[in-house]
Nucleic acid binder design. Structure first.
Lengths: 340, 340
DNA sequence: TTGAAAGCGCTACCAG
DNA sequence: CTGGTAGCGCTTTCAA
């Protein structure tokens, strides 16, 4: 393992014992002073000596030792492997971290890329987090939840397309997005609807859910849907647009606004009238979609605030025996602009 | 110690001692078996008993205890507080995590939002990471680096606009972006150049660096620059576009493509000819910029690969006494399309 | 082939 | 007011 002898490898990282020695007090006193323990009174001169010694040595407490001793942590683990990276989710994420920090949690994102399902859950459990907030479809199963709870996690919360048994599940039912888009198109008289499926890795789960919703809404209304694989580059879009007239579609729902914009431009370059010949709708309501001409119709997604989720986490931690609840997290509504 | 029902599972988190007891062996043996320790031979029946006991109890080793005992970790800390969230950086980040994991590091993002400078460094040091890769301007100072190294970090690597003393510094000199954009505009005969400054929080440091570079290139060429604060919404853009003719500018560099697209549309809505009356250039070479008409000129940023950085981290960990080096991380080049 | 025991750094109880 | 000390869960040397 280690090839170098200790005296070289370890340039003596200072411990509380070192601080105690330098300050001429005991380790206990050091602990009391540095943690401002209220239940014990330490004289001001001693406090100063301890503080100065710690400063001089560059002492930083050892989180692992502390939490080992304490028997618990305040760590909230956010395993976010395959999460969408649009500005909306980014803001949500940021908010969540901020709010958790305000509640005195230590927020750690632990990317267990390459592990799946229960292996990932085990890896998370090794860190003994007090709560796990799993974002997106990271393969968390009922068994995974059980592993986490058995290892001391007070709360396991899943934000995913489908509820996870045993966890508090905030369902982001992506099917609603596809369903909303297609319903909008159907209401505007469209019957043959293409659904763009992004080829990019990491989006599969979201894409499939949205497609599923789209297909459901279509059959319910007597329309048909057709999946259209598309890579996020101009060549792919041009290729799809080139054979567009053969597809016999009168509308397209394009996963999200990025793909919608890409495809819409390619269709325009093929002189296909939008929305006359083909209606286009995206999702996620990007600002940029409003800048195109025609303005891009979209599905607006109302996401709960990060602060809300943080409070939910806190509540679940405080009341670990609360029945895991499932609730819906997303509101969804079509925004009609000019492209549909 | 019979099997506990689910609701009481939290009462006792199984330890290796529990596994040992159930398997009828010692804790040492459990450790040997579960870690596949090569230097010691354990009989196959014993191995099986241990494995089954661990499985039955849902035993997961305690990472903190393990690293406390080991005296070191394989944790690479990525404190990424205010990092740009465009697709390019997102991919870079993803690559980096993946590559570090391949090198057997545990990647942890620790958002110390709300802490600044040395307080943040202390918070990171508490986790005793073997390496810290600080992304963006998180206020890491020479003193912060010292704290981290004193607490056992073998490598501190900074990706920031400016080098940090004591750390391996990969300089992402954002000034180059602004300089490149303005140079491009100057070469095309422009002399009065607006520079869009995003109002959004978290972008200040990048924006200022890019502006600084823009200003430098302008004065060197006898042109003038004017900062133009802009919020990322249509109202703000419309307002700026409305008073555009009074500004007397013949070109604008707009921080990045997002802001450039927003402003360009607003200018077009005011019937300002692009690039005839006003040339527009953005940065970061978003795909969407190519979809507008005129196509958006941009500054393409070549970023080093995540794999490269991961190897650098690994090397710095293996050779901690290597002299901290500073090198340039970004290549930058103007891409002329139609808007300039 | 397996077990006993030391000790990583820290905090909290109990004595003085 | 301050110090001694037990022990959190784990690995690893040494002994049996």
């Amino acid at each position: 393992m280690s090839q170098t002898p200790k005296q070289f490898a370890e340039r003596s990282v200072p411990t509380s014992a070192d601080v105690a020695r330098l300050a001429g007090v005991s380790r206990a006193t050091v602990s009391y002073v540095l943690n401002n323990t209220a239940s014990v009174r330490i004289s001001e001169p001693t406090r100063r000596r301890v503080r100065e010694a710690a400063e001089e040595l560059g002492y930083v407490p050892h989180a692992a030792a502390r939490s080992l001793r304490a028997g618990h942590t305040r760590m909230v683990l956010l395993p976010a492997t395959a999460f969408p990276h649009g500005p909306q989710f980014h803001r949500f994420f940021h908010e969540l971290q901020w709010a958790l920090r305000r509640l005195d949690y230590t927020v750690v994102q632990y990317g267990s890329l390459g592990l799946d399902g229960d292996d990932a859950a085990r890896a998370w459990a090794e860190l003994r987090p007090v709560a796990v907030v799993s974002l997106g479809d990271v393969g968390l199963t009922a068994h995974g939840v059980d592993i986490l709870k058995r290892s001391g996690a007070k709360a396991v919360i899943s934000l995913a397309p489908r509820p996870v048994e045993g966890a508090h599940s905030l369902v982001m039912d992506q099917r609603g997005v596809g369903g909303c888009a297609v319903t909008h198109l159907v209401q505007r008289g469209k019957r043959s609807i293409g659904v763009v499926m992004p080829r990019e890795p990491g989006l599969e789960h979201f894409a499939e859910s949205r497609f599923e919703g789209a297909a459901g809404a279509a059959t319910a209304a007597g329309a048909r849907v057709e999946p259209l694989p598309l890579s996020y580059d101009e060549e792919s879009a041009a290729g799809l647009a080139h054979r567009w007239r053969d597809l016999g579609l009168d509308a397209v729902y394009a996963y999200n606004d990025d793909y919608a914009m890409l495809l819409m431009r390619a269709l325009q370059d093929e002189d296909i009238d939008i929305p006359g010949r083909t209606a286009v709708i995206g999702a996620e309501d990007l600002l940029l979609g409003r800048l195109l001409r025609p303005r891009l119709s979209t599905v607006h997604i109302d996401l709960v605030t990060g602060r809300f989720l943080a409070e939910l986490v806190d509540q679940a931690v405080r009341d670990p025996d609360d029945r895991p609840r499932t609730r819906d997290l997303m509101g969804v509504r079509a925004v009609h602009r000019e492209s549909s």
